[in-house]
Design a protein around this nucleic acid. Structure first.
Lengths: 249, 249
DNA sequence: CCCAATTTGTTCGTATGTATA
DNA sequence: TTATACATACGAACAAATTGG
């Protein structure tokens, strides 16, 4: 159970400041699933011993990871790997707000699953070679039975080997949760571009709205640790009764 | 030039941790325009003396304010008040689809200025009473001569006394810069809701596009220090050649 | 061009307080 | 109550970047 790694060598290691090297090694441990989302990581004292650094240096590394929403600290309890997409956090990346500013939580329905190959645009977004094997998943999210959002998701078959329509349908929780528990892939960050579009016949059908109405078109890339892209998702959103929200500082 | 204030009293002041009390006082000094955006604030040593705290406590306070994008530190130079929304920063989240092109800032044209009273919705967004006196400013932003974005801005007359069409037209820099230099109001944070809409005749005209095409409709509230709302802005954006961008972690 | 002063960045720790189990 | 864990506050010593003489 104990790591044989004794201490870090500040000079030889990488030229990075010690605390950044500690950060790097913690993120590496997270990538290797040594600790999973929700787990408590070792105490500061133990980590100091493991990395051979002072408490101040370790705390600086942890501070950064907390600021990046990768770890969470609780006084008196310990430090934990951040859990994304649970409960109200489910829509941390998808803040739909109704007219009264209340946050709402759509239901997810899987409407399609197939295998294929990445075209040039998708490959670029996911960091794959053109023609790489991919999955395509189509979904519809609804609120109170009313379709609101149609998604077309692309995943690399290499990153998610053996994924099937059954697994997607029978997932116990969210898709991101499936990525985590079945493949150890944690989504910690996204980037999106937003445009306005007209609902064509297909999206109008999927969204249960008349064709020709305006919809939001969101292209999203989801990233895991170390900025690795893991999912590409194009969403079409009916914003007649909800709006997309964000805060920026 | 010297502040007569000697030290903080950790017990008597507020029950807050010392470093948060230091933060509060720094933000207060910023609100009072003791230091303006772009200014260098006193060195750590001087601030330690001013607040009567240790270097570690002061640095923790500064760390927080840097993380909140309120201050910026430069090794060897000093610590500075962050400058928001200057040049391309205003469009930090507005990417050109065809690549960089960051060199062509959107040009701002003022197309309307009037006085009026806040309706219920606007009053709520700006924290005003319904019927409070307000200004309305209409603008169009263009890139390379092509209109891209039409804005309708609402400001409180109380917050911006004596604002005139002349001052708005003859501003030396951006609108946010005008808020800062003429009224000491610094925009440090925004919240936005995004919806899709159809360009009606008015917006089609202002955007130089055929009516009936989809546009993004963005409702933005801009905040100063201490979460005070200072501006409400509704934008209509032609996204045929550009997309709205954001990153979330 | 180099040097010295200034300023922040990094690393090291100690002592004490607060929250939790 | 006790032990553990993180939070706060203190400060020393040296490194790195910048500026001005």
């Amino acid at each position: 159970m104990q790591s044989p790694m004794p201490t870090l060598d500040p000079a030889a290691s990488s030229g990075l400041p010690l605390y950044k090297e500690v950060k790097r090694q913690i993120v590496q441990a997270l990538s290797a699933a040594e600790w999973k989302p929700g787990d408590m990581i070792p105490s500061e004292k133990q980590l100091c011993a493991r990395f051979g650094v002072s408490i101040g240096t370790l705390r600086k590394a942890i501070d950064d990871l907390v600021a990046e929403n990768i770890l969470v600290r609780h006084q008196g309890r310990g430090t934990f790997v951040a859990v994304h997409h649970r409960g109200p956090r489910l829509f941390r990346f998808f803040n739909l707000v109704d007219g009264e500013g209340q946050r709402t939580y759509p239901q997810l329905e899987i409407t399609g699953f197939s295998k294929g190959r990445a075209d040039k645009a998708v490959a670029a977004r996911l960091g794959l070679a053109t023609g790489a094997r991919i999955y395509r998943i189509a979904t519809v999210r609804s609120i109170e039975g009313k379709p609101l959002l149609a998604e077309d998701i692309t995943l690399s078959q290499d990153l998610f080997p053996g994924l099937t329509a059954e697994k997607v349908h029978q997932r116990p929780s969210t898709l991101y949760n499936l990525y985590q528990v079945a493949y150890g892939i944690n989504v910690v960050r996204i980037e999106e571009g937003v445009q306005a579009a007209i609902a064509d016949d297909e999206y109008a059908r999927r969204l249960g709205m008349p064709p020709g109405l305006p919809v939001l078109q969101v292209r999203r890339v989801a990233f895991s640790y170390n900025d690795q892209p893991v999912e590409y998702r194009v969403s079409h959103i009916d914003t007649r009764n909800h709006e997309y929200f964000r805060a920026v500082s």
